[in-house]
Each structure stands twice: as C-alpha cells, then as structure tokens.
Nucleic acid binder design. Structure first.
Lengths: 195, 195, 195, 195
DNA sequence: GATTAATCGAGACGGTACGTCGCGTCTTAGT
DNA sequence: ACTAAGACGCGACGTACCGTCTCGATTAATC
C-alpha cells in the first residue's frame, strides 16, 4: 500500500486559500485591479499578510487562480445547428466575457498587466484561455475533418478582431455585427485553398 | 483685428516639456513602464515634481504625448505595386512596431494600462493609432472605389489578429506568415458581397 | 538747500506695503504663526510674491514691522498715584499684552522663532520691547532719583516672572496676583542695600 | 493572579526607538531645530519614516522624550552649606543649562515651538522642567518649614528673570550676577510677611 | 511726448519636506 | 509548520511652500 506522507507541521489552511480567492474576486469588481493591493486582499480575506505571500507571489497570480476556471466555463458554447451559428455563439460569448463578465474583467486586467510585467506575461502564456476556447469550437465542427497547420492563425483571425475592438475602444458588440463577422470569417476559411 | 493676449505670468517652459518627454522615452526603454515613476521622471528630466504634475496627470499621459508621433510615423507604409504587397507591408510594419519599436513598447504599455485605469482608456480612445494607420492604407488602395460602411470591422480584421498574438503570446511574426494573413484577409474582403 | 533725489524707476508702492502688513496682522490672529506662509501672505495681500521678498526677508521681519508700534503703545502705562500702583498697572498691561493682545501674540511668536533662528534673535535683540517699557516705568518713578547700575537685573526681576509663567504655562494672571508680585518686587528693591 | 497578555503582532523595536532619540539629540546640536525634519531624523536613524510617525507625532515630541531626563539631571544641584549658596548654585546650573547644554538647547527650542503650536504648549505644560527643579531646591531648604501657598510665584521669581534675559537677549550670565540675584531673591522671600 | 528704469501682479520654475500608503520581510504568540 | 497580527526599512504618492525666474503692464523722472 502506498503511504503518502504529509509534510510536517500544520497543513495549509484551505479556509485561508478560499478566503483569499474570494476576496480577490470581490475586490476586482468593487475596486478594480489597480486599487487592489496585497495588503488589502489580506485584510479583506481576514488572513495574515504573510499567508498571502507564502502561496502567491503577486496579485496577478491570485487573480489567475481565482478566475481561470470561470473564464473557461464562460467561453464554452454548446453545439449548434450549423457552423455559422456556432461561430456566432462563440463570438457572442467572447464579447460578453470581455465586456460584462467578472472573469473577463480579470482576464483583461491580466493581459494588461502582462504588458508591464514579464512574469505575468509568462503566466498568461501558459494558459491561452481565449485561444483554447476558440480551438475547441473550431475542432468540434465537422465541417473540416483535419486540424490544419494554420490553426493558430485561424484562431487569431477569429478572436483577434473582437479582442482588438474591446481592448482599445471599449467596444460594445451587438449580435448582428458578430454574426456578420462570423460569416466573413467563414468565407475566408471556406476558400482557404486560395492560399 | 484679433488681439491674442498671452496668459499672465511666466510662460510654460518648452525646455522642461521636452526634457520630460525625453526622459519618459528613455526610461521606458531602460527600466520599463512599471518601474517608471513620476518622481523618477522628474529627477531624470532635472525638473521639479510639481512641473510634471502641472502639465500631465499620469505617466500614461506623458507617454502618450511622447510616443504618439513616433507611432504614427512608424506605422506609415509607402504605396506598393499591388494591394497584397501594401497590406503585407502594413502588417510587417505593425508587427515590427509592436515587437521591436520603442514607440510600440509604449503603445503596448498604454493599452495594458487602459485595462486597469479608465482614464487611460479614455485617452487611448481619442487616438486610435493602429486603426488610423490601417485605415489610411485601406483607403489609399484603389482596389475598391468607395469607403465601405463596415470599415471599422474591416480594420479590426486586419489589425486584431496580429495584436492578439503579440499581446497574449509575445508572438514573433515572420514575413511569410504575414503575407499569408494578408492574402486571407483579401480573400474575405474580395467576396464581402457574400454578406 | 538739500535736494533729495528719488531713485529712478517706479517708486515703492505704499499700498502694497500696507496691504502686506495688514495681511500679516490678520493672518496671525486667524491662522497662527506656524500656518502663515510667505505665499499665503502675498495672496492674502493681493500682492506679487516677489514684492514681499523684495522688502522683507522672512515672515518674522514683516511681523516685527507690523506689530512693534502696537506693542510699545500697549505696554505704556499712565502715571499713577504711587509707585506700587504704577508697577501693578505695568504688570497688568504686560500680562494682558502677552495673553490677550494681537501684538502680544506676535511678540510671543517672535520670541519663539528667535529660539530656532539666529537671524530673528538678532532682530529682536535690537528692540527690547518688554524691557524698554519696564525701564520707562521704573525711570519715571521719582521714588529713586538715579538710574542704578543693576537696572537690567531690576527689569528682569520685574518682567521675567510674568513672562516665564505665560510662556511656559499659558498662565492667566489675575490683578491680585500681579499686585502681590508688585509688592514683593518693591520690598526687594527697597532693601537693595542688602546687596 | 494577573495575566499580562502582550499585544498581538511584532513588538515595538527598542533599537529603532533609541536610534531615533539618538538621531534627534545629535541633529539638534549639528543642524539646529529648524533644520531638523521628520524625514531627516528617520534617515539619520536608519529607520523607516512610518516608524517615526507611528510613535511620535512631531519632532517636538521626540525632542522632549530625548531631552527630558537630561534636563532634569542637569538642573539638579547638590545640597550646599547655606541657602544662599544653594540658590546661587541653582541659578548657575539654570544659566549653564539654558546657554551651554544640549538639553537646554532642546528646552529653548521646545519653549519656542510652544509659542507657535498649541500641541507643543500642552506637551510642555505636562512637564515643567525648570519649575520642578526650582521647587526641589526650595523645598529641600530648611530655612522655611512650611510649603508656602505662593510657591508658584516664588518659583517664577527665581526662574523668570534668568529665563527672560536668556530667551530675549542671549544673555551670558556670570557667577557674580547670579549670586547677586540670589541675594536679592532671598531678601524678598525673607520679608515676605510684608505682603 | 518718448525713453528709461525700477516697480507691480501673476504664475511657472527646480527643489524638498510633508504625512500616507503599499511593498515585501520580520518577529511575536498561538494553533 | 502553519496561522493572524502588526512593526519593520524602504520608497513613491500627490501637495504645499520655499525662494527665484520671467512675463506684460504700470509709474515716475529724465531726456
């Protein structure tokens, strides 16, 4: 039988961990990323300051842990009647995520921070939330049997335009525009042999 | 006849203004956006701290003033033999701007900061550097006589994919990939009537 | 005949001078010495900052000019029926000056500042407001024909006790105590031959 | 049994406390009260700025804590052969304290500051260094069995004249003058019944 | 009447201390 | 070994005042 020996001493408190994640979630919405501080998080979570630093090295790291699961869930779209609808639904979910959702607010804060802090950039590179969600939609669709070598470019062409408009212009997407974007995207994909 | 009366008191020092802009330019490259402080800028520019605060309200504002002109210049591409080449050259310039140029570093820092600070977001909304550059390329091209209503979407489909890959994955673009992206972009534009 | 040639250029503005003195007077009462600033004085007097610095080098200097005349006037006591009454009246005037009068407030501020600033100490040494007032009372009195060599000590014994209690303990003198002090002072002076 | 529970968290650092007091002591002599700043004190003591503000609210408060003990010690005079000698020795100690001692320099700065700042005035009222020293000399002397109701006045008549001459005129006392002042003081005290 | 020169109010300039806040570390007692 | 609490050294924040400077406008005496 396998004996998994626990490390000596008092084990990590799951209560403290959850309290911190919860605090970060709440504070992001209530005060915004910039106003969030390690000190503030600890106080809000009623947790020692050292406890926070022991398990996370920055507020970005906590935020990633606190929102990654939500992000993936919110970007999942159910199968639809046809590919155009599926793509449209994905774009709708993407836009809603980026403009309305708490997890999306966290994601934007993290992408923003990544432009200032190389460590956060590396953290984010490990989990391409948007890309993964797009890929899972594209792969599921039966309209194209094989994953193509240009998948990354394809994903970028799907996700990029929406992300650009929202990040740089706080764009509020409407369903019609997104359906149009989906159509145009599919036109290009359909005639990809033009490459 | 119109009499333009100067405001009372000692006029603003152009020397101080330029010293600050210069300092911010240098410090961004040498130390990075996050390490830059208002205090540091003032000291580097050998300027009083109050003088900085008198004319700019944040380092983002200074950075924007310091880099906007450079950004616009670096994103300008000369007319080419055909539309595909022009688009490709624009994408090359865009990718180089975002990954290698100092002004591009500034732009990425500003877009990042905009995700944390509403004030910066509004500043950026006033000057769509990337979009304007793209628009000027698209409009110049004679391949389509009329400006199209979906111009914003079109611009986003051109700029977005590159921006997405660079912001979220520190992508290093090669000319071939960009030429391919340009071709695919043109395919979609060409059959836009499919909408 | 003597020709007094005025210096070239615009002459000093008496309006500005009075406005500054007036402002300092008012501000001392309203805000206190510590809260008074050269900048604040200039603004209150609606006068340029340079104008203040041109004629005075510190707020202490302005305050001295603004209050010296008042101080001398308030410490003058009319001749009385006998020496005890005269001394008592002087002590009453002295205590009232130090605890209630605006000029006395200024004097205390200046003596205070003199402990921090050698320049103010020298300014004050030039005008011994309290001592001069005391001397003029003592000399006037016919009870002793000649000015005695220990006049300085005598003045100190008259003024010092009151000043000490007010400066260090914010003492509020009553007339009875002051009369008692006057009597005790005279007893000592009367038997000064005991020296 | 009484359980004294220490307050939570890291206890106050005695090292930091002493370093601050030491720094203030040194800086007062080297730079003077006016040139001393909270920032400078912290840096000199190699202590965080917040640590200074946590325990003291002004440089006056630190100075008082740093010099009160020295002041009391320096103003203590040993019993002498007769009352006149004791009083003279006290006046000598008082004059030396006010003109030569570091603690006396601190005291003068504090009395000065008290004229500008009500808070400092209250601090000083809590510890009448000069008066206490005088009282302990007067009470020790057996020349008068009972403590007299006019003790405060008596103390003021002893301390005041010296303080006045030093504060307002930077007087340098010589032993002979002080012995004369002591004699005159005793004459008055001896015939106090004249009241 | 034009020129000259020192003043005026206004306000920007380079500095620097203010008192606060957050950083990340440390030192307690207690679990 | 972990926990909460909270002091520690450090340094940036944005503000206020320092004393100086640079403007155009004003005010007399001199030319």
């Amino acid at each position: 039988m396998v004996e998994i020996t626990r490390p000596l001493g008092r084990p990590r408190s799951e209560d403290a961990r959850l309290a911190v994640l919860r605090a970060v979630d709440d504070m992001l919405v209530e005060e915004g990323y910039a106003a969030m501080t390690m000190k503030g998080i600890a106080e809000r979570a009623r947790v020692g300051r050292q406890t926070v630093y022991r398990w996370w090295s920055s507020k970005a790291e906590i935020l990633l842990e606190a929102s990654a699961a939500d992000a993936a869930r919110e970007l999942t779209v159910p199968p639809g009647p046809d590919i155009e609808t599926e793509i449209t639904e994905f774009l709708v979910a993407l836009a809603a995520f980026l403009t309305d959702s708490d997890a999306g607010l966290a994601y934007r804060a993290l992408v923003g921070e990544a432009q200032h802090d190389q460590k956060v950039a590396e953290l984010l590179r490990g989990t391409d939330v948007l890309g993964d969600a797009a890929r899972s939609v594209l792969r599921r669709s039966e309209w194209r049997a094989v994953a193509r070598p240009e998948e990354d470019a394809s994903v970028a062409e799907l996700v990029g335009p929406v992300l650009y408009r929202i990040l740089t212009a706080d764009w509020r997407a409407d369903r019609d525009s997104l359906r149009t974007m989906a159509k145009r995207y599919l036109v290009r994909e359909g005639s990809a042999d033009a490459t």
